[in-house]
Write a protein that binds this DNA or RNA. Structure first.
Lengths: 341, 341
DNA sequence: ATTGGCACTCGACTGCGTGGAGTGCTATCC
DNA sequence: GGATAGCACTCCACGCAGTCGAGTGCCAAT
């Protein structure tokens, strides 16, 4: 084993101890609790090098060492092994999620479950409208001058919008339109809808074309509305439990950030770019002041590769990364399975 | 002014000062900051009486007094005057809510607004399915053996449910059924639907009756599902701001309670029984351990009397009751107006 | 009934001394 | 040259005593 390797072992040991005890860890404790095979003095030399490299710091002169953001990053990138969940745990996840009666229920159960498993804050993004496909479009006349447009996606999501029309509806026309729309559009990704609708306009009678234009406008608007992308959060109480120890002042900024859908959605979108099974953002990597002392661990679910949406956990820098990553990955997998079925 | 009256004045002064300063208030400070017209010694006598009556306590021997739950209760029942909001504030509420594009948006804006106004946690209950009325029912065939049932309420809420059928759909039958259902059911309160549907069964052909039965079952089930009653929460970060001072240990239990829909719904339902414009629950009156150090201020909206749902604020015992009550009442009124229009 | 005076209590704050954990440096060993 | 042992040094945490001040309760006087 090269001395470089041992240094990383020391880093791993520091992180493991610090995560477990929440206290700066010194060279003596380290040599006693881990079988590193070298004396405290040697460890001190390694620590000096690690500190030089910016992976650990001392809170003050005569204290032990604490990992930095960079240290944790090194740890998750090179040192951590995702430890698989126990069989009973997997059984519990599977059983709980399978009892769900609809999409809302699945999401609700998943987010609570993940909060419980990780003992942290859990976040689950609703399956994205933009990336899922269309199963069915329904046009429902409501009174003479209102038309309800219902969009059903392959992920079981239903969006509706009521249109106010300038002239009375021709029911027969609506019925024809409904058939044409479904024939032309079923199976398309929602992002492709507006273009497809436009090309339909050409083939239709003037009255139908006018109606389709209104529908196009409504659908486009619905899709454009970022607010349709929702993230649900659970387990915020888990933040409070260790608040004083883990956050410099209060958890206020964290709670604020978690209530801002926009912040969460941006972060989740960024993490989807990683194209790894489980993505991690540590401290300032989140690019948000309120989250500078938290880490995000997320995974895509509900499709190939990055998936159509994300699920994850949020906790203090000092979190059990391997355990959290395992739990997140497991829940993402079961979610994918349930939604596909 | 009788001595009894003065005692209540002293109580009011204590609460006002304590709310403002967050520190136990003594007799000297009281006589200086309020024009009570008597000496500190007299105030001390009154304080002794108030303490005897259980309205205030001293944290320790040589400290000032702090109001008890009972003290606050006395205050809101007999002493507080709801101070109306300023015109700019009202304008802001009105403007913000009127920009909303749909029900979800209204609720979302309302809850954020109220959190901001009160600087506390805000809760808004979705208009209850049980108490609102039906505007339209739509039956949408999806493929040969699936039927989508869409329920639209007068409060703009849309619920849907997909039914799986044992035999192929007869589209003409569905169309007839759709007309019959809407003719018979429009305007009914949702709670009355199941009975009305049952009586419809008698008038229909055997095939139609079978289909109606399935629909009845689905609708009943949907209505029975308590989970359809949702409460949204915002501003939890406001709890953290004063956490150390206002809560004996952590805000954990409070956050837990706020995540439990069941807890909130029970409490809101209880408060609706008060039949007052604004209902208040102080500390242990909430009947929930996690909320023993918080107060709820809520008001009904969206209908006559208790209304179809509630909106409110949650904060520490030591809150600005008059201000909170004013804000809650105002938001409830504007919500009612918006939803009626 | 109200007030002024007074003794008393108790927490908050301050300063001081001690113990201990942990480090960095240097000389030494293999 | 890397690993180790020894040692002096630093600095925080903790306990303790003393002081200060706010506030009370009670009593005698008005």
């Amino acid at each position: 084993m090269s001395s470089e390797d041992r240094r990383l072992d020391v880093l791993r040991a520091i992180i493991e101890d610090y995560v477990a005890t929440r206290e700066p860890v010194g060279s003596r404790a380290l040599s006693e609790r881990h079988r590193l095979g070298v004396s405290p003095a040697t460890i001190r030399n390694d620590m000096a090098a690690l500190e030089e490299a910016g992976l650990i710091v001392q809170p003050h002169t005569s204290a032990g060492r604490v990992p930095t953001d960079m240290g944790y990053r090194q740890f998750v990138d090179r040192l951590a092994e995702v430890k698989p969940l126990s069989l009973p745990e997997r059984r519990a996840i599977s059983a709980l999620l399978e009892q769900a009666v609809d999409l809302d229920d699945v999401i609700d159960r998943a987010v609570r479950l993940l909060a419980q498993l990780t003992q942290q804050v859990a976040v689950v993004q609703y399956p994205s409208l933009r990336r899922s496909s269309l199963r069915h479009v329904e046009l429902v006349p409501v009174g003479a001058r209102h038309l309800l447009v219902v969009i059903i996606t392959t992920t079981g999501r239903v969006e509706q919008r009521t249109l106010e029309l300038t002239e009375d509806l021709d029911e027969a026309l609506v019925a024809r339109l409904r058939m044409r729309l479904n024939a032309a559009l079923s199976g398309l990704r929602l992002a492709e809808l507006p273009t497809a609708l436009e090309s339909l306009v050409a083939e239709l009678s003037p009255a139908g074309a006018a109606l389709v234009r209104v529908i196009v406008a409504a659908v486009s608007e619905t899709l454009a509305q970022e607010s349709e992308e929702r993230v649900v959060v659970a387990g915020t109480a888990n933040l409070a439990r260790t608040a004083g120890a883990d956050f410099s002042r209060t958890i206020g900024p964290v709670l604020e950030a978690l209530e801002e859908q926009v912040v969460l959605l941006r972060l989740l979108a960024e993490m989807a770019e990683d194209h790894t099974a489980v993505a991690v953002r540590i401290g300032r990597e989140t690019q948000h002041a309120g989250l500078a002392e938290t880490s995000f661990v997320t995974s895509g679910y509900g499709g190939e590769g990055p998936g159509v949406a994300r699920v994850g956990a949020v906790g203090p820098l000092r979190m059990d990364y391997p355990g959290t990553m395992a739990a997140v990955r497991a829940v993402a997998r079961y979610l994918t399975r349930i939604l596909a079925g």
